[in-house]
Design a protein around this nucleic acid. Structure first.
Lengths: 213, 213, 213, 213
DNA sequence: TATGAATGAGCGTTCATTCAT
DNA sequence: GATGAATGAACGCTCATTCAT
C-alpha cells in the first residue's frame, strides 16, 4: 500500500469527476436513452466494468451525475434565496446562474426535461428547487414587488420557463437569443411591479454577460 | 365472411383506441423508456405480437398514440388561434383546452417533456404549437394587450408553463389547484394589460369547470 | 350439402393447384427463407389461415409443392429411363425435359439447391432421381456409348450439372445460353463416344426447341 | 492489465476460431436456416450475447465463417489457376483441394448450395470461382487438352460436379468413394483428350491421399 | 484497480398455427 | 370454407452487471 488512504480518496474523487464529465457529455450527445454505461466509460477512457469500482450501479452513477450537475446551480439558487437581496433581484440572479449553468453543462438539460428515468432523481431535486423559488416569491409578495398570488404556482411557472431556457440553449440558440429570453422572463416575472430601482438595475452592468467562452 | 367490411373496420378502430388508451396508461405509469410493446399489449389485454396486427412497428404505434393524444389539443389550439377572439381570451381558451386534455389523457404529459425518443415527434409538433402561440402573442401586442416583446420567446414561456400544468396534473393535484394555476398563468400572461372587459370575463362563468369526472 | 362429394374433391384439388402455383411463384421471388405462409396465401388470393384447410402444416404444403413441381419432371425422366431409346438419347431427352421444366416453374430451382429446409423432401426425391439416371448410365455402358465408370458417380455429376442448368436459368440467362449449356452438357456426357447416328441426331430437328413462349 | 495486448489478440483469435468451428458444425447439422446465433453460441460453449463480443452481428459472423471456410479453398484454386501447370493437372489439383476442404469443414457444403441467405456471399464468391475455372478451361483449350467449348459453361458444369462432391462428402461417403468420384470427374473433364503423360499422372502417387485424419 | 469476456434478462419483431365467427 | 385476430415460440440484438485475471 504505497498510497495513503487520504491520497486514495483523492484519486477516487478525481475519477468520479472524470466520469461525471464523461456522462454529462454522453448525455448531451446521445440523450437519456442513449446514455449507456459503455459509452460513458469509453468517453471517460475506461471500460464499462471499471465504472462499478466507483458506483454501485447505473442509477447510482446517474444520481451522482445529476447531483453534480445540478448541485452548483442549487447552491447558487439556495444561496441567492437566502441572501438579503430584494426578491426581483434574486430571480434575476438565479436566471443568470441557470443560464451559465446551461452553457457549462449542456448535458444538464436532459435532467430538466423528461419525467422518465430520472423521475427518481427529480423527485429529490424539484421540490428543493421549488421551495427555494417559493420562498423568493413569498418575499417578493411581502415586499410588494409581486402580486399576492400562490407562490407555489408562481414557482412552478418560473421553473417551466427555466426548462424552456435550457431547451432554447439545447436548440443551439445564440447567446443573444438566450439573453433576450432571460430578459423577457425577468420582465414577465414581475412586470411593472418591479421597483423603479430594480428597473434601472435591469439594464446596464446589472446584467452580467454570460460567462460562455 | 360473416362480418361486413365496415363492421371489421369499426372493430379495428376500437382496438386501436384500446391500444392507444393502454399505451397512454403505460406512458403515464412507466415513462417513455418504460413503455414496452409487451407492457402496452398486456395493458390492452393482448400479447405483444398482436399489436403488429394494428401497427407496423413501435414507432408507428407511438406516432399514432402521439397523434391521438396531442392532435385534439392541437386542433383546439389552432382553431382558437384562428378565431376572432381577442388575444387574451384566446390564451385562456387554450389553457382550458390544455387542462381538459391533460385530465383526459394523463399519458399526454410524456410528450411534452423528454427530448429523447419522441424528439422525432416533437420536432414536428412543438414548432406548430409555438407558431400558433406566437400568432396570438403578435395579435395581443397589436391589440395593445401585451407589451411588445418577442412573440417567439413569449410563446416558449407560455409553453413552459403549460408543461408545468401537465406536471401538476401528473402529480395528482386537485382540480382546484389546477384551476388556480391556470388562473395565475392567465394573470401572468397579460397582467393588468388585459382590458377591463377581459378582466371581468376572467371570473365567474367564463372559466368553465374542468370536465374531469 | 349442395355439392356432391366428388365435386367437392375437384374443388379442393383446384384450390391445391392454385396454392401450389402461388407457392412456386413466392419461392421464385423470395427464396426458400422468404416463403411464408402469409405470402403464399396472399399470392393465392387467400388468407394464411385458409391454407390449413388444405394442408396440415407448412411442411405438408411444401412437400406437396415440391412433389407437384418435381413430379412431372420425374415422370418424364422415369418414362424416358424406361423407354427403349439408346442411353445418350435418353440423357438428351431428360435434359430437354429439365430445361423446359425450369422454364415453366422458375421456383423449381429452389428445390435443387439448398440442403436446408427441404432436405426432408430431397431425401425422398434425390435417390429416385439418381436411380433413374444410374440406370441410364448402366445402359449406356452396356451399349458401349459410355466408358465403364461407376454409374452412381456419373449420375451425381449429371445431377450436379443439372443444378447448374437451373442456376443458369435462375440468373436470367437467355434461351440460347441455356441451350448452349445443354448442348455442352450432352457433349460432355458422352463425348465422342456417342454413335455417329447419335451425333447426327444431335443436330437439326432432333433437338426440340424449348417450349418457352 | 495482466495479459499483454498481443496475448489478448491471440485469445480473441482462438475464440473466433472456436466460433467458426461451432458455426460450421451447426451449419452442417441444421442447415442454413437452422443456424441460430443461440445454437452457434451454445455449440461454442457460450451464450448468444457473447458472440457479439467478436462479431458485430450475424451477417458479420456468417461472412467471417464463410471466408474462413471458403477462402483457403479459394486461395488454393487461384494459386493453382495461376501456376504453370497444364490445364488438366490444374483441375485435378483443384479437385484434390476441394476434396480436402470438404473433409476438413463439413459445414462448407452449405455455402455451395442454397441461394438463400448466403446469396449475398455467394454473389461474391461464385464469380471468382467461375473465373478461375474459366481461365483454366481456356488454357486447356489453347493447349489442346480440351475441346473448344464455351469455358464459362464448362466452368459451371465443373462447379456443379464440385457441389456434388461436397454433397457426397456430406452424405458420409467413405474416402474411397470420394476419391473414386474425383477420379471420374477428372476423367470426364478431359476424357481422352488428356495427354498420355497426364493420363499416367492420373494414376499412382500423382493422386495424393486425402489428408483426412 | 482496470480489463475484457461472459452472462442473462429484456426488447422489438416475425411467423406458423389456432379458432371463433 | 374463409376470415382475421390472437397466440406463443423463436430470433437477432442490446446492455447492465459480474468476475477471474
Amino acid at each position: 500500500m504505497r498510497l495513503s488512504k487520504a491520497r486514495r480518496e483523492i484519486v477516487t474523487a478525481v475519477m468520479k469527476d472524470t466520469i461525471v464529465e464523461a456522462a454529462s457529455s454522453v448525455l448531451e450527445q446521445h440523450g437519456v436513452g442513449g446514455t449507456t454505461m459503455d459509452r460513458v466509460a469509453t468517453t471517460a477512457g475506461l471500460t464499462a466494468g471499471s465504472l462499478y469500482n466507483y458506483f454501485r450501479n447505473k442509477d447510482d452513477l446517474m444520481q451522482f451525475v445529476y447531483t453534480r450537475l445540478v448541485e452548483p446551480l442549487f447552491q447558487a439558487i439556495e444561496e441567492t434565496s437566502k441572501s438579503d437581496l430584494p426578491a426581483p433581484r434574486k430571480l434575476r440572479t438565479i436566471l443568470h446562474s441557470a443560464r451559465d449553468s446551461a452553457i457549462k453543462h449542456r448535458g444538464l438539460i436532459q435532467f430538466f426535461s423528461g419525467k422518465d428515468q430520472f423521475s427518481e432523481l427529480r423527485r429529490d431535486a424539484r421540490p428543493r428547487f421549488l421551495r427555494s423559488l417559493a420562498a423568493i416569491f413569498e418575499q417578493g409578495i411581502r415586499e410588494g414587488f409581486f402580486r399576492p398570488h400562490n407562490p407555489a404556482h408562481a414557482s412552478r411557472m418560473f421553473l417551466g420557463c427555466l426548462s424552456e431556457l435550457f431547451e432554447l440553449q439545447g436548440e443551439g440558440a445564440s447567446n443573444e437569443e438566450v439573453n433576450e429570453f432571460v430578459d423577457l422572463l425577468i420582465d414577465a416575472a414581475f412586470g411593472e411591479f418591479s421597483l423603479p430601482a430594480e428597473k434601472n438595475a435591469n439594464s446596464g452592468e446589472a446584467v452580467p454577460p454570460s460567462s460562455n467562452p
